[in-house]
């Protein structure tokens, strides 16, 4: 277990290093010029001298490699640079917005579990009967509707027509409901189907028949024995698609004016605020790697054969 964590942490350093290199190069290759954006923001006439001065101030006159080296040196000291636009350290900006994003992602996941778990359980209980068909249609709908459109529909219905919930912003619990549902519903669709097939698979195993032969209650067999095996594929997919979840949260944060990392990143992209973008991508990379580490750890919790380093001896 400790060995695994150690291995993963070393891996993490490499992943982040490569990620930082790629981000930096892409940023330099990307069209647009932060200097011009910054100067235009002031709405004043710009001279060549102004432009050159700003370039020098931001270090753009130096070779790209030197720029990267400087950024890297800062990174080691956890200094991600300073936002061009706001003049604040990038790390502070990110940490300011992080709680909002965590809150949104967590509540989105809660909605996902709340929908996917019962839907998957019911669908596997009655395969190819009407509860299964309903869940299949819901899954198709959930997977097909783009989340921004789904969000707009929800805003239209619950905020404009019914006036129950606020359209956007962050504050009370009510503000969280629509973004969480929008984020959770799309994911729930996929996971409900995944859970269904996982459960159907594990319920057909001989050890489930053995558990029935021991006279265990069906509920107990389902929750204690079958579900645990069915969670493995679900968690695998979750780890792989965690990046998508973060990407999805950018759209939803923008749609609902949720002041999180996603909207910060989007704003930074429009304004060519390179340090923020770089910091955001690095942070995202860090999350993805950490989540995948957690996924690996959860494998060994769910299946002792992985933890104890021995396959089934069949």
């Amino acid at each position: 277990m400790l060995q695994l964590i150690k291995k993963r942490l070393i891996q993490l350093v490499f992943v982040l290093f490569i990620l930082s290199l790629v981000i930096f190069i892409l940023m330099k290759l990307a069209p647009g010029d932060p200097v011009l954006t910054l100067l235009h923001a002031d709405e004043m006439s710009i001279t060549q001298a102004d432009e050159a001065a700003l370039r020098e101030e931001l270090g753009f006159d130096q070779p790209v490699l030197v720029q990267y080296g400087k950024w890297m040196l800062g990174l080691i000291r956890l200094d991600l640079g300073t936002s061009y636009l706001k003049g604040r350290p990038v790390l502070d900006e990110l940490l300011d917005k992080l709680p909002a994003t965590i809150q949104l992602t967590a509540s989105g996941l809660a909605v996902m579990v709340a929908i996917a778990l019962p839907l998957g359980l019911i669908a596997s209980r009655y395969p190819n009967r009407w509860p299964d068909h309903v869940s299949r249609i819901l899954a198709l709908v959930g997977a097909s509707i783009p989340s921004f459109w789904m969000g707009l529909l929800l805003i239209y219905l619950f905020s404009l027509k019914l006036g129950w919930l606020p359209t956007s912003g962050k504050g009370s619990f009510a503000h969280m409901i629509l973004p969480s549902i929008t984020l959770g519903f799309a994911m729930a669709a996929v996971y409900a189907r995944l859970l269904r097939s996982g459960l159907l698979d594990s319920l057909s195993q001989d050890y489930i028949k053995a558990a029935r032969a021991r006279g265990l209650a069906e509920r107990r067999i389902l929750m204690g024995h079958a579900l645990r095996a069915a969670l493995l594929p679900v968690i695998t997919v979750f780890g792989v698609s965690f990046g998508n979840l973060l990407a999805g949260s950018v759209v939803i944060e923008t749609l609902f004016a949720w002041p999180g990392l996603g909207s910060l990143a989007l704003e930074a992209i429009f304004e060519r605020d390179y340090p923020i973008i770089q910091g955001y991508v690095l942070a995202t990379g860090l999350f993805v790697v950490v989540v995948n580490l957690l996924v690996d750890l959860s494998y060994s919790l769910l299946d002792p054969r992985i933890r104890l380093g021995k396959g089934a001896s069949s």
């Binding site: 001989d206 489930i208 028949k209 032969a213 299946d303 002792p304 089934a312």
Partner: peptide, 13 residues
């Protein structure tokens, strides 16, 4: 009840 498939007499995990 005792099964032929002893590997699966108990839930593996």
């Amino acid at each position: 009840f005792i099964f032929q498939n002893y590997q699966e007499s108990f839930t593996p995990f």
